[in-house]
Design a protein around this nucleic acid. Structure first.
Length: 494
RNA sequence: GCCCCCAUCGUCUAGUGGCCCAGGACGUGGCCCUCUCAAGGCCAAAACAGGGAUUCGAAUUCCCUUGGGGGCACCA
C-alpha cells in the first residue's frame, strides 16, 4: 500500500490592479499543479480591498488568463465553493470580527494617529537616519479610553501589538528558518480607518478560514513573513507551510520589470503579460512549459512538458529560491516545440484566428493541409500568416526584382518561367511527386542549380523569397492557380 | 539608511562531501542534411564570485568580504 498523500489546499490570491503577468501565472500554475498532484483543491481568491487601486476588467482578465493557460480552480468568485465568498470585498465583517478579537486579547490596539502625523513622523525619522517605524504613541492607551474616543467619533485604525523584544523565527520551505529581531518589526496596521482590513490581516484570516495548507506566493512577501506568522500565532492557529517563490528579473537580470520596460518589450514581440503573449501567437502549452521551468526543475534531461506531464512530475522539493532572469528566447524555443507537437488538425484550429484577424478568409480544410508544411517553420502562431498567407490570396504582390534569381539575368529568368509553364501545363495535376520529378529533370538539362530554378518559381508562385517547400505548396495551391501565377510573373518581366 | 533573501556557463538550471579537471537546456559558432527558411543530427566555445575555516577530501558544511535582488504605506 502506497503512503497516503495528504491533499493540499492552496490559493492564488491576486489583487485586481492591472494585467496578469508571468509571476502570477507561475504562482497559479504551481498552485494548480500541487493541488492536482495531491488530490487537493486550488482556490482563486480576489484581494480587492484597496478600492483606490481597483482596476475594472482586471478580475476578468485574470480569470481569462487562467482559463487560457488551462489552470482550472476548484473554488473561486465566479464558481463559488464551500468557503466563500471568494472576494475580500465581500468579507469586511469577518476581518473586523477577527481584529476585535485581537484587541480583546490585548494583541492589537486602536491607534488614533492621523496620516498627516505619521508622514511627519517618518520624515523626522529619516532626517535622524532612523528606519521608518511607528513610534508607539497609541500603543499604551487604555482600552476603555480608546473605546470612549471611538464613541465620540474619532478616527482610528487597528494596529498589531508587535513584541519589542526577542526574536521571531519562521520556516520557509525553500530557505529554512528565517529569524528576525522583533525590534525591527513594526506595529503594522491591520485595519484601515475606513474599516477595511489590510492584506496582512485579511490574507491570514482567509487562509485560515479557507483551510489553506500551503501558502505559495512571490518572495516579495518574505519581509512581511514574520508579521504574518505572528498574526497566525496570535490567533492560535496552526501555520500553513510557507513557500516563497523566486522573483522574476528582467532579461538583463537587473531588477524587476518596470512599466516602461514592459512597453519596450512588446515592440520586440515579447511581453510579461499573459494577455499579450496570447495575442503575439504564443501557445498556452509553450507558456506553461516555459514558465514552469523558471525556478523549478525536474531532472537533467527532461524539459518538454505538457500540463498533464507537469501534474505528474511537479514537486515543491525542486523549487529554486534564487531570482531568475526572464529568457524570452527560451519561450520561443518551447513554443516552437509545442507547435511541432500539435496534430495538423489542432494546429489548423490554433492558427485560424490569426488569419482571420489579418483579414484572410480561411477554411479548416486548407489549413489542415498547410499545417504540416509550416509546423516546423514557425515559432509563434501568428507567423503562420506571414508564412502561408499566399495560399489564400487571389493575387500575390511582390517586387519583380525578387523574381530574378541569384546569378541569373532577366532573360534566363524568363526562360525558366516559360519552360516551367510548359512543363507544368502539360501535367494532369500538380501531384507532388509528379511535378517534382519533371522539374528536377528540367534542372538537370538546364545546367542551372536547383536552387536557382526553384528560387524563381518560389517567388512566382508564393510571392515570397522564404516559403514552405515549393512542391508541397504548389500541390495545395492547385494547378490552375500555379500556372496563372507563373504566367503573371512572365508578363511582369516583359 | 535599516531589515531580509540569493550567489554554478551570457541566461534557465543539475549537483545535498568523494561518481564533477562540474551534467543538461536556451542562445552563440562550426559541420552535415537541403529548393528558400526552418526543423533535425553531430561538434565546439562557455561557469562553481573572492578569502578563510572544517575535512584525508568541498561546487556541496561554517564564517567573513563582495556582488545581486527584495522589502521598509491607512498597496498588494
Amino acid at each position: 500500500m502506497a503512503s497516503k498523500q495528504v491533499p493540499y489546499r492552496v490559493r492564488f490570491a491576486p489583487s485586481p490592479t492591472g494585467h496578469m503577468h508571468l509571476g502570477s501565472a507561475r504562482t497559479a500554475l504551481y498552485d494548480y499543479l500541487i493541488a492536482k498532484k495531491t488530490g487537493g483543491q486550488f482556490i482563486l481568491r480576489i484581494e480587492d480591498t484597496d478600492f483606490k487601486r481597483y482596476t475594472p476588467g482586471a478580475e476578468e482578465e485574470l480569470i481569462n488568463g487562467l482559463r487560457w493557460l488551462g489552470i482550472d480552480y476548484d473554488e473561486g468568485p465566479d464558481i463559488g465553493g464551500p468557503y466563500g465568498p471568494y472576494r475580500q470585498s465581500e468579507r469586511k465583517d469577518i476581518y473586523l470580527e477577527h481584529a476585535e478579537r485581537l484587541i480583546n486579547e490585548g494583541k492589537a490596539y486602536y491607534c488614533f494617529c492621523t496620516p498627516e502625523r505619521l508622514t511627519r513622523m517618518r520624515e523626522e525619522q529619516q532626517k535622524r537616519k532612523e528606519p521608518p517605524h511607528y513610534d508607539g504613541t497609541c500603543r499604551n492607551i487604555p482600552l476603555e479610553e480608546a473605546r470612549e474616543r471611538i464613541k465620540v467619533g474619532e478616527k482610528f485604525v487597528f494596529r498589531f501589538k508587535t513584541p519589542k523584544e526577542g526574536t521571531t523565527t519562521v520556516t520557509d520551505l525553500l530557505r529554512g528558518e528565517i529569524t528576525v529581531e522583533n525590534k525591527n518589526l513594526d506595529d503594522y496596521i491591520l485595519v484601515k480607518s475606513d474599516g477595511w482590513a489590510l492584506y496582512h490581516l485579511a490574507a491570514m484570516v482567509d487562509d485560515n478560514l479557507m483551510k489553506i495548507t500551503h501558502v505559495i506566493r512571490g518572495s516579495e512577501w518574505l519581509p512581511s513573513l514574520p508579521l504574518h506568522a505572528m498574526i497566525v500565532r496570535a490567533f492560535g492557529w496552526v501555520e500553513p507551510v510557507w513557500v516563497h517563490l523566486s522573483i522574476f528579473l528582467k532579461p538583463s537580470g537587473k531588477g524587476k520589470m518596470s512599466k516602461r520596460e514592459s512597453a519596450d518589450l512588446l515592440k520586440d514581440g515579447h511581453s510579461i503579460f499573459v494577455k499579450d503573449l496570447q495575442n503575439l501567437g504564443y501557445t498556452p502549452e509553450g507558456v506553461v512549459n516555459w514558465v514552469s521551468l523558471m525556478g523549478w526543475s525536474y531532472d537533467d534531461h527532461t524539459e518538454f512538458f505538457t500540463l498533464d506531464d507537469l501534474v505528474d512530475k511537479f514537486s515543491l522539493e525542486h523549487l529554486n529560491p534564487s531570482p531568475a532572469a526572464i529568457n524570452f528566447s527560451k519561450l520561443d524555443h518551447f513554443n516552437g516545440l509545442h507547435i511541432r507537437n500539435f496534430t495538423n488538425e489542432e494546429l489548423a484550429l490554433r492558427i485560424a484566428p490569426y488569419f482571420l484577424k489579418a483579414g484572410y478568409e480561411v477554411d479548416q480544410g486548407s489549413l489542415i493541409k498547410i499545417a504540416p508544411i509550416i509546423k516546423e517553420r514557425i515559432t509563434t502562431l501568428d507567423e503562420a500568416v506571414g508564412m502561408a498567407g499566399f495560399f489564400f490570396k487571389e493575387e500575390i504582390a511582390y517586387n519583380s526584382q525578387d523574381l530574378i534569381g541569384k546569378g541569373l539575368d532577366v532573360e534566363q529568368t524568363r526562360k525558366i518561367l516559360g519552360d516551367s509553364f510548359e512543363i507544368l501545363s502539360g501535367l494532369e495535376n500538380l501531384n507532388l511527386a509528379l511535378a517534382e520529378t519533371q522539374l528536377r529533370e528540367y534542372v538537370e538539362k538546364s545546367g542551372l542549380s536547383a536552387g536557382q530554378i526553384f528560387g524563381v518559381l518560389r517567388v512566382a508562385v508564393t510571392g515570397q523569397k522564404v516559403s514552405p517547400p515549393l512542391f508541397e505548396s504548389m500541390e495545395i495551391i492547385g494547378k490552375e492557380k500555379v500556372i496563372e501565377r507563373i504566367k503573371n510573373a512572365l508578363e511582369m518581366l516583359s
